[in-house]
Design a protein around this nucleic acid. Structure first.
Lengths: 219, 219
DNA sequence: GCGCGCCTGTCACCGTGGTGTCACCGGGGG
DNA sequence: CCCCCGGTGACACCACGGTGACAGGCGCGC
């Protein structure tokens, strides 16, 4: 398992790296956000152990770009002040786990290992088109690095369209796939949902309309 | 699977080509963007492995023209500086995957193979005649590389004619196949639709008229 | 238990583009 | 020479999709 540790406090970074290596993991270390982004672009990691307060590029931004990468890499956030509010904020960025300092070392190892297992299982299923990336397993969607806040139905429709990249889906087909069988065949909810999706996706437009033929992304 | 490698750094190009050939792929190599565009015009490739920084025509432009071709060819972008920003930019051009240098060779092979599968899945159901190609699943039609903007009925008629390549279809037959059963048998809509189709298809004319016998493409 | 907010679905309205009709024209064959 | 078939251009209709506003419902937090 490949792990990247991003931590500016050198002593701590070294200690964490050594501990994880003793568990049989391949560990790289970065001291700031810039280095971290470079390392992440150069190789795929299963887990990133990420200090939130970094010099230069902030940990939150690193986290965002990892998630936007959409290759299933998991993020374990470390932070000094362990308020619940911060925890929530970190998870909102797409972090997969959170650990307030000071932490029990055994717990860190256990969590990294757990995230590694999830990473291995989650590598393939990330849908991408242009600057849009959608992870059905995590229910996250990003456009140009910005996280999209989508409702369940909106997310389902977007997922359907991306799974049929380049091919149009009629309102009826979307209704079948994203709603349950009890859906009223005469409902207008599909067009409304598509509309809200379009607003949230922003510019430039991604969803084409084929008059009389449905909606499409790509092609 | 046919692969085109576009890379000006000769040693690297040769190494990549050799590696892919060992995997059983048919590989061609170009050293610059000009050659690449020529090769792409001359033959259909499943995947293009494309260096972003090319002498002459830039990799981005090559990528754009491949995507515009609309024949399902997939693009794997290679780039030296592996920033996330660049990654996003590359995908925004319509590239299907992205790999920052230096890359793991096994990963390159795996990604090319994955793209090849996607390409193969997208290719088969395409109707072609001369410089016209129609993809019913995607509801797309191209003439000489230019995309045609067709209405549902126009598209349906074109599809019928192509499925009966070389054989004529009477107005009645077209009415049966492209309109629903409630169609007025005395309507003149077929000839109007064929006319609009002809205009959109442009020159040289593709649809022949057999006086008293219907319309035909090919033969 | 209560209230607030978000997601969802409905409705009415409107702009528009695809579609069908019509009248006219041109040419080839009987 | 006439007639019929098909090409051509203009026009009108209408259904489809976009848009905005509103209401019900569910969950969450207080």
């Amino acid at each position: 398992m490949r792990v990247l540790v991003v931590e500016d406090y050198e002593i701590l970074a070294a200690a964490v790296a050594m501990g994880l290596r003793r568990e049989g993991m391949a560990v790289d270390v970065c001291a700031d956000g810039e280095q971290a982004l470079e390392a992440l672009a150069a190789a795929r990691y299963d887990v990133v152990v990420l200090d939130r307060d970094l010099p230069g590029v902030h940990g939150d931004d690193v986290c965002r770009s990892v998630v936007a990468g959409g290759d299933g890499t998991r993020v374990l956030m470390l932070t000094a002040a362990g308020s619940v509010r911060q925890r929530v904020a970190g998870l909102g960025l797409g972090a997969d786990d959170y650990l307030p300092k000071p932490f029990d070392f055994a717990e860190l190892v256990a969590r990294v290992r757990a995230l590694g297992r999830r990473s291995a299982a989650a590598v393939p299923p990330v849908l991408e088109y242009a600057d849009l990336s959608v992870d059905p397993a995590r229910r996250t969607a990003f456009r140009a690095g910005r996280r999209l806040d989508l409702g369940p139905k909106e997310f389902a429709v977007l997922e359907c369209l991306l799974r049929q990249l380049g091919r149009p889906l009629s309102a009826e087909q979307l209704l079948e796939q994203a709603w349950d069988a009890a859906a009223d065949p005469f409902t207008t909810t599909v067009k409304t949902t598509v509309r809200r999706l379009r607003v949230k996706l922003g510019d430039p437009p991604l969803i084409d309309t084929l008059r009389g033929g449905g909606y499409r992304i790509g092609g």
